[in-house]
């Protein structure tokens, strides 16, 4: 397996795909039932946020143990962005038949800016790092 990615990263991707599909499944189901819509939205999105957080925390920690990346959060963060973005756009356009996908694009835009600044030091391989390791942490 690669230096930065272990099977735990792929397990996180699998969990994120499943959870995101379940979220949109719940939203789709709720849209057919206007009476329960708000409560289902609230429960589904809260459960999604909590489950994603704990998946990222658990599998990210395991990925950190079984690979050599010092900031393994950037991989979990990037995967979350790609998975959420792809599935959201797919559901919006294919299942919900929504014409206006601006809200999703807007989330992706601002989230993308945050993600960019998170991964920038890693991409740049700046002076604080050697082969991906933070210099100050190499000999700790």
């Amino acid at each position: 397996m690669s230096k930065y990615i272990s099977k735990y990263f792929w397990l996180f991707c699998l969990a994120a795909i499943t959870l995101t599909m379940l979220l949109y499944g719940a939203i789709y189901w709720a849209m057919q039932r206007p009476a329960d819509r708000n409560i289902v939205f609230l429960i589904a999105s809260s459960a999604y946020a909590v489950a994603m957080f704990f998946s990222g925390w658990h599998f990210g920690k395991q990925n950190g143990i079984h690979s050599d990346v010092s900031d393994n959060g950037i991989f979990i963060h990037s995967a979350s962005y790609i998975i959420w973005g792809t599935i959201s756009l797919a559901w919006m356009t294919l299942a919900f038949d929504v014409v206006n996908i601006a809200p999703v694009l807007s989330v992706l835009f601002f989230w993308g800016i945050g993600l960019f600044f998170h991964i920038l030091p890693f991409i740049k391989g700046n002076d604080d790092r050697m082969n991906g390791y933070v210099k100050e942490e190499i000999f700790e």
């Binding site: 230096k3 143990i65 050599d68 050697m130 082969n131 991906g132 390791y133 190499i138």
Partner: peptide, 10 residues
């Protein structure tokens, strides 16, 4: 193990 893996990558 963790330290050795890191040193090997370096």
């Amino acid at each position: 193990y963790r330290t050795l893996r890191k040193f090997r990558n370096l």
